[in-house]
Amino acid sequence: MLHIVNKSPQERPSLDACLRIAESGSILLIEDAVYAAVKGSASAGKLAEAAKKHRIYVLLPDVEARAIADRLVDGVTGIDYGGFVDLVADHRACQSWL
């Protein structure tokens, strides 16, 4: 299953809920959720741990808009909107953790 998160982990518990509940699968960070993948941030460790269980993706246009492309944690894959479409197509269903 594809899990989509769109909120900063320091604003809302969406990422926490996703990581607590989601079965092993794929997680895509979009909009303000891309801040979760910033190296040295409070959520970096959490994300590294999650990367052992899930494949983690970040939406690059959102990363670039927020000027954090050069400080992403290891183990996350950057994709564009075309890649976002492919991810949705490749999974039976998706849940948006709004």
Binding site: N6, I30, E31, Y81, G82, F84, V85, D86, A89
Partner: peptide, 19 residues
């Protein structure tokens, strides 16, 4: 909110992929 922009860009990509 960015939601509408994200949805629009996603739609464009869906069509570009031939879906």
């Amino acid at each position: 909110h960015q939601a509408s922009d994200s949805a629009y860009l996603f739609c464009k990509a869906v069509l570009a992929k031939g879906h």
